[in-house]
Every structure is written in C-alpha cells, then in structure tokens.
C-alpha cells in the first residue's frame, strides 16, 4: 500500500464514519494526508495556525452540528493540554484528534524524540482515550474512532507512526 493509498483510505474511512470538518497544523508525515484533505470537495477543511485555535474552531463547528477532526503533529499536544482540559473535557466535546507521531522509530531528528516519547503519557494523564496505530491496513479502525468519540463523550486521540505510512 503506497502512502497515497493510505491517505485516501484514511480520509475515506473517516468520512464514512461521519467526519465532515477538518482542521490541520502541518507535519512532514501528514503532508500527503493534508493534500488529500485539500482536494476533497465533500468536507470542510481549513489550515490553522495552532492546535488550540483549531480546537476552538472545531468547537464552534460542532456546536453547529458538524463532526470535526483535528489533524496535527504530536508536538502540538504539548500546547493543547490546557484547552483540551478546560474546553474539550469540561464541555465533553466529541472530536477525534489524528496525530502523527514524530520522535518515534524512523525519526531522523533528535529534537523530536523527547516529545515523541512523552505524548502518549501526556494524553493518558488527562484521561484522553488514546490509541496507537502502526499498520497501513488500520485506516478502518482509525475511522471507527469518529463515532467512538460520541460513545466516550469527549476527545479521543489516534496516534499514527512512521510505519502507518510505510515511512521507514
């Protein structure tokens, strides 16, 4: 499965499960997926400056009946923690975060490793249901997390690593 196929399957499975509003902050691993989002006319997609801003925009869209997904790099989790608590968890906002996992095996840049190592623990510390995916054939399972946000009644995180895109 090529990275392009993975990205198309990922968007197809997210959409099939109800996701219709996407925001992103870029990541090298997400470059192809972001292009896929940009080319899809059936969804709303916007680039944002920062993850908290994206969470806010998604909150407004969800209040108007949309089903948002935040597409971001794991490093953004660090700045997002406070808003995830005081907005996402306090108001129990059912959004999926699709998070690329820099700083995990396959990573060439040492500066990415500390946050890559901390991200799962950080999300678990604030009780965000967090699931790791390493297999390109798992796009369907990631998609199924969209309705799971309603079951969980709050934000849910899917962390996708280098192997998910066959990138090492």
């Amino acid at each position: 499965m090529s990275a392009t196929d993975v990205n198309q399957a990922l968007l197809r499975d997210l959409k099939a499960n109800g996701a219709d509003f996407f925001v992103s902050v870029p990541c090298k691993l997400l470059g192809g997926f972001i292009s896929t989002l940009e080319q899809d006319n059936e969804i709303t997609y916007r680039a944002v400056n920062r993850e908290e801003e994206g969470l806010g925009i998604c909150t407004g869209a969800w209040l108007a009946g949309r089903k948002p997904v935040i597409v971001m790099q794991n490093t953004g989790v660090g700045t997002l923690i406070t808003s995830l608590c005081s907005l996402g968890l306090y108001y129990r906002l059912p959004f999926l975060m699709v998070i690329s996992h820099r700083g995990s095996p396959g990573e060439p840049i040492g500066a990415q490793v500390p946050m890559g190592t901390a991200v799962e623990t950080l999300l678990q510390t604030i009780n965000i249901p967090t699931y790791m995916f390493s297999d390109p054939s798992d796009t369907k399972k990631v998609g199924q997390l969209v309705p799971f946000t309603d079951v969980a009644e709050g934000p849910v995180a899917a962390i996708l690593d280098y192997d998910f895109w066959g990138a090492r």
């Binding site: 908290e52 806010g56 925009i57 909150t59 407004g60 108007a64 406070t82 608590c85 907005l87 306090y90």
Partner: peptide
C-alpha cells in the same frame, strides 16, 4: 449565549468556527 469558562484565548476561534456554519450574526 455560550459561556466559555476556561480555555482563555479561544472565544474568538469558537465564534469563527460557528460563524462558518450558520447565517445568523455571531
């Protein structure tokens, strides 16, 4: 009225996301 009681800084962004989706003044 949506009273955003935490997440300092995000009132503007929530308003933006809402205004993208409705015709009413936000």
């Amino acid at each position: 009225h949506f009273y955003m009681l935490g997440s300092m800084g995000l009132s503007s962004s929530i308003g933006l996301g809402l205004s993208m989706e409705i015709d009413n003044t936000v």
